[in-house]
Nucleic acid binder design. Structure first.
Length: 515
RNA sequence: GCCAGGGUAGCUCAGCGGUAGAGCAGCAUCUUCAUAAGGUGACGGUCGAGAGUCCGAUCCUCUCCCCUGGCACCA
């Protein structure tokens, strides 16, 4: 049986439309999933809607829409975005799904309760009636008022809630993370979590009164006056989406997650709270947590008040999904904040996609059209001896495969695809060096050899970029009559299939028209 | 304030003890198979500031300045 690979993207808050940061994370999750599929593994990629938070209720009220309809509409926008981006999510689990998610959420609760880790305690805090939220003194202005409602005094409110015994799992968590049994990637985030775990851990509140929750969310088992609080509930979507609490066989097949893809802002919930819940419930822990950084926009943080929120759907409509995917994946390190600018994006599009890949394919196909009737020529030697595979002075596509593989192990996603573009540059240079336009008159055999190697390389490039730029990869493969090959879960490291001489080449429209 | 990471060519970044590197942009030049695309070359940097260690520091140590993140029940 094929190895399985299960990964998740964070489930977005659905109180507003998706922005470009969501697009980045979806693409990162998708490319990892696609690469593992390419390795022949059975993969599953999940995300969904974080719908049970109080903020959704408030946002729905403000919009004057019934809450369920509000979250349904907003969640759909995120799902639409994933499709526009060419991301293949196998599961899209909604938090408000009473058939699958509610039982899962309650099951996790019951398991933790059975372990003796849930108890009742009175929670006391400063409550802003305007925001309907509790605040810490540090979150307030100098008058002790919240920033949304200055002049409004906060009330000291106490409420009976259920608490989770987080403190009990402190030392276990330190050990698991230190020994990389729960990998936190990259190291800076791992160290951050470990330093957080050096302080004494407080137990956390995991329920809210119906009143405060506005009767929205998953009811606490055995207590119909309380709802399960969002974090205890939301993280569990990673399990409820694959059968936890409603299809044990499916759940056993996929759980634990091989990696959770998340943004840096929610590291603690994933690296501390979530594994603690699972330890308490006696369930296996995720193997890794991949923490990516954020986009700034033209040097500034993205925010609604600044009005610089970028709509990814608009960009896709204008430029297509693959160019955006390329920009995200090749031009940013997942481990440092990157600045998104449309001008820079256009530069990259022209330099790397139009002048780079697009032009290489175009000139190679042009040579085949003019000299070999638009067909793949037959080489007079063993393809494995071709300089584009073996020349030590060339950054070959074989080298690129190694770099791609390494990049998915380290999660430095940009280095693998960067290596493909290094090869691409050398292929361009190879054409200039060989001067095929001269060979066509004096040495047709040599020309066939040169061109075969180039077409062979383009075929490999299509294979290599398939996880990153699926649409483009298929376009190239179709043009070379090898799209079935591409979809066939090839074994990438030790073997590959040579292209067949005589195959008709039909490129059609250019891959990336210049902007 | 404390802890961690970073400040290197116009832009994005690599290098981390031995006369500063890449890609992109700009400039020059060669070439024509190609999407006015491709190749080559030159230009371009007191490697955040100051002090110290060393024969020698972008790289080690100290101080300072600036940026980013974390410092919990906030999603």
């Amino acid at each position: 049986m094929a190895k399985k690979f299960y990964l998740t993207c964070a489930i977005p808050y659905v109180n507003a439309a998706p922005h470009i940061g969501h697009a980045l994370e979806f693409v990162q999750g998708d490319v990892i999933a696609r690469y593992h599929a390419l390795l022949g593994e059975e993969t599953r990629l999940l995300s969904g809607g974080d719908e049970n938070a109080l903020k959704n209720v408030q946002a729905a009220e403000k919009a004057g829409v019934p809450i369920q309809q509000f979250v349904d509409d907003n969640t759909q926008k995120f799902l639409d975005l994933t499709k526009a981006l060419g991301c293949r999510f196998d599961v899209w689990q909604k938090g408000s799904d009473q058939v699958h998610h509610f039982p899962a959420s309650q099951k996790l609760w019951k398991l933790c309760a059975k372990a003796g880790d849930i108890y009742q305690k009175s929670y006391e805090g400063l409550y802003c009636v305007g925001c309907e939220t509790f605040y810490e003194p540090s979150e307030l202005n100098e008058n002790g008022e919240c920033f949304e409602h200055p002049g409004k005094k906060l009330e000291n409110v106490s409420e009976n809630n259920y608490f989770f015994r987080l403190s009990k799992y402190q030392s276990q968590l330190v050990e698991l993370i230190t020994k990389d049994q729960l990998r936190v990637i990259p190291d800076t985030r791992k160290n951050e979590v470990l330093s957080f775990l050096k302080q004494p851990l407080q137990d956390i509140s995991i329920s809210r009164s119906n009143e405060r929750a506005k009767n929205w969310g998953v009811p606490v088992p055995g207590d119909d006056t309380q709802r399960i609080y969002v974090w205890f509930d939301a993280l569990n979507i990673y399990q409820s989406g694959i059968g936890f609490g409603w299809n044990e066989e499916m759940y056993k097949k996929w759980w634990p997650a091989d990696v959770h893809v998340i943004g840096k802002g929610i590291t603690r919930f994933h690296a501390v709270y979530w594994p603690a819940f699972l330890l308490s419930a006696g369930l296996p822990l995720p193997r890794a947590i991949f923490v990516h950084e954020y986009f700034t926009v033209n040097g500034q943080k993205m925010s609604k008040t600044l009005g610089n929120v970028i709509d990814p759907v608009k960009l896709i409509d204008t430029y297509g999904a693959d160019p955006l995917r390329y920009y995200f994946l090749a031009k940013f390190s997942p481990f440092s904040d990157g600045d998104f600018s449309e001008d820079e994006f256009k530069k990259v599009y022209n330099a790397d996609l139009a002048n780079g890949l697009g032009n290489l394919v175009s000139r190679t196909f042009g040579l085949a059209a003019q000299n070999f009737g638009g067909k793949i020529p037959a080489p007079d030697r063993d393809p494995d001896a071709h300089p584009l595979r073996t020349d030590p002075a060339i950054h070959t596509w074989k080298t690129a495969w190694k770099d791609i593989d390494a990049s998915f192990r380290s999660y430095e996603l940009n280095t693998g695809i960067g290596s493909v573009w290094k090869f691409l540059k050398d292929a361009d240079k190879y054409i200039n060096d060989q001067k095929p336009w001269e060979l066509s008159k004096k040495d047709p055999k040599a020309l066939a050899w040169v061109l075969y190697g180039l077409l062979d390389s383009i075929h490999q490039i299509a294979w290599q970029i398939y996880p990153y730029l699926p649409e483009t990869a298929l376009h190239i493969a179709r043009a070379m009559g090898s799209e079935k090959l591409l979809l066939k879960n090839p074994v990438v490291k030790d073997g590959w299939t040579n292209i067949a001489p005589g195959t008709k080449l039909t490129l059609g429209k250019p891959l990336f028209p210049r902007l």
